[in-house]
Design a protein around this nucleic acid. Structure first.
Lengths: 392, 392
DNA sequence: ATCCAGATTGGAATCGTTTCCAAAAGGGCG
DNA sequence: CGCCCTTTTGGAAACGATTCCAATCTGGAT
């Protein structure tokens, strides 16, 4: 097509008056190549503008050093955190990563089919997506290295958390504060629109129920509201709870995103948080700290990293130690939860944003306290501005 | 290595008693193949568990149908939105997408070098990252199709917004409400830690200054505070502004993320929003709607999609129409901004979450109003729960 | 039966590397 | 100078598809 076809390694070899093997050796490591030859070849490479074909190299070498990662609902903060964690590890291990975002079953099946029907990635990481027998069978038949994150799958190395225990943690926290009427807001599959097989909300609900039962509290079905994932729906569900004749004094939301919806509803209904309503979320995404949301922390970024690490091990031919790797959970107490009946006269200040924001974790998830120092009045665009700088 | 080496197209051909060409034809489209032969070949393929090598096919065909996308700070909501937009289009166009996350200059240069030194992707999308002369030269030399999103680059198809105009929009909105003392909170490069060349905050600041000047307002350098990106820093910067003897009545933050920090600081300092302080952000990320943050909306997801679309056009050999494609901005008025001096006795309710959350855009960014209907008391985990369903 | 156009088919050439092996070139030493 | 052991080197043989061309089949028309 192109008039001057891209130069190949043969062109380089011919021009430099050496063999293709020598050029290849110069390109990869350059062992056992005389320095003078090396320089000559490099010079020709630069002169011809030669760029090796990754494809050809990969084919010949037998591996493209490429993995694929399948994530659902890329825009959710928890998904992004996991993806970022995986990418960091894969990057470090020099793997290229093909990202497949999946919002529907069709997309899921299409990507899974593409990944299993042809050999395009050395291995696959599946995040938060339920794989049924047939999916697993396809991977097995193709002998495609597979790990999952936040999803159980028989015989597949998996990095998960105990959602049920997490549900208990959150509920126990509220019980310990003295709450007896505790609501739950979580996910349900929209009718006729089958989901991707998330089970976490369901299992968190189970934990909530177990913990209530253990405390000898009669479950009230009215207090459990489920709907499609997202803050808007969660707000509406919470609003229904708050309009009950005998509203709950606390709500456990199956995710921080939903907890934000709950906070929103509380604000609208005039339920000061935590004065008249305590709220606990799940995940500990970045905004949770910003909003001072009490929550169950799970190591999101780390889970992605672990999945990636384990896939790499698999690709190296190593056996992955515990097939099921379970990451720890812990409750993070912030100011959205407190003893019930603390309602101050006049409503009191809303809890939102109320705590010391300078102690929030920064964007990378590392928690550290910040101090500022005025560095200089710098000139910027012809005007002055105060520029501040971190002090560790 | 593996005992039974993966079967190749030759194995299939031999087993089925046909030529490799026929097998290839069956695999791709199956034109001009007798139905009986087709079935026989398919049977053998299934029986042998044959999976075509994407690598070999790509090498032979001459293209891997793979593009790479370089994004900075993957975890930022605005970045994710852009990435999701691009992925959706590339997916539809049947391209595999290699995602490269970049947090430092070293990572940027490493990925750019890897992408330009070898032929691994058919084309590249660079998001929000400044490319200098040498980077561009490398792409040019290699004749690698390149587009940028949210970044200007000479001669490269680019999808951008007018940040300066955006800065003016936000400021004009506040001026129109009657504010005169308007603060600015934005990004500055941390000392000794050069950034990736973001210029948007700087240009928004410029717009802020121009608009103030146009209104005949003397710029007060004290009112402009810059620091590393992130809500925590923004909160501290805003706090400094609010502690001034003559604090601003409004603050324009260079991004919604930073605006959230500003809201946090306002809450802590006891400045009700919008009663005593108006806040305007930039981007219109999802949480902006949830927090009722007035902001300058830019089409984030769409920008990624456009970048992808334009890259595809480039790969098809088409000329991309306007080299510089500029997407529209508009101010979104929510309840974080109002006329100054509206402070109600007793502080009044905080604006946060105050509006009708059920009219928030849902997760996919489509705005629609929701209604709920109680569908059934379903049994879930042996207990009852209320399950709600959308009504369009 | 013969012929011919069009539908099938086989298989060699090709894509651009890596890798292996044998050959050539060095180099140290007696 | 010759010998032997290292380096260094050239080039053919993979890697596993696609593609093209020529050869072989079809089946209907004559």
């Amino acid at each position: 097509m192109r008039t001057p076809d891209r130069p190949t390694i043969a062109d380089v070899a011919a021009t430099a008056g050496v063999g293709t093997g020598t050029v290849s050796r110069v390109l990869n490591g350059g062992v056992n190549v005389r320095e003078s030859t090396r320089l000559k070849v490099l010079e020709v490479i630069k002169r011809l503008g030669y760029r090796p074909s990754h494809l050809a190299a990969a084919l010949s070498r037998g591996s493209a050093r490429t993995v694929a990662i399948l994530v659902p609902h890329l825009t959710r903060p928890s998904t992004v955190a996991r993806l970022a964690g995986a990418l960091a590890v894969l990057d470090e291990q020099r793997y290229d990563t093909i990202v497949c975002n999946v919002d529907t079953r069709e997309q899921r099946d299409h990507h899974l089919a593409a990944l299993t029907a042809r050999h395009r990635a050395d291995g696959v990481i599946v995040v938060s997506i339920y794989l049924d027998k047939q999916h697993l069978e396809a991977f097995h038949r193709g002998a495609i290295p597979l790990v999952t994150v936040d999803a159980v799958a028989a015989g597949v190395p998996q990095t998960i958390i105990d959602d049920m225990a997490g549900g208990r943690l959150a509920t126990a926290h509220l019980l310990e504060l003295g709450h007896r009427r505790i609501g739950f807001v979580g996910d349900a599959i929209p009718r006729g629109e089958p989901d991707l097989g998330f089970t976490s909300s369901r299992r968190r609900l189970l934990g909530y129920r177990r913990e209530l039962a253990a405390a000898g509290i009669d479950p009230d079905p009215e207090l459990v509201r489920l709907g499609p994932h997202g803050p808007a729906v969660a707000a509406e569900l919470a609003d229904q709870l708050l309009r009950l004749p005998d509203p709950p004094t606390a709500i456990f939301a199956a995710s921080d995103t939903q907890a934000m919806g709950v906070l929103s509803a509380a604000e609208r209904r005039g339920f000061p948080v935590p004065g008249k309503l305590s709220v606990v979320g799940f995940d500990d995404i970045e905004s949770a700290a910003l909003l001072n949301l009490s929550t169950v922390r799970q190591p999101l970024e780390h889970s992605g990293g672990e999945g990636a690490r384990r896939l790499c091990a698999l690709l190296h031919g190593a056996k992955v130690r515990p097939i099921r790797q379970q990451l720890p959970l812990r409750i993070v107490r912030r100011s959205s939860s407190a003893r019930p009946g603390l309602d101050l006269p006049g409503g009191g200040p809303s809890h939102l944003f109320a705590a010391d924001a300078s102690r929030m974790p920064d964007e990378r998830g590392r928690s550290r306290s910040h101090a500022f120092r005025r560095v200089s009045d710098i000139r910027l665009g012809g005007q002055n501005a105060c520029r501040m700088e971190w002090v560790a």
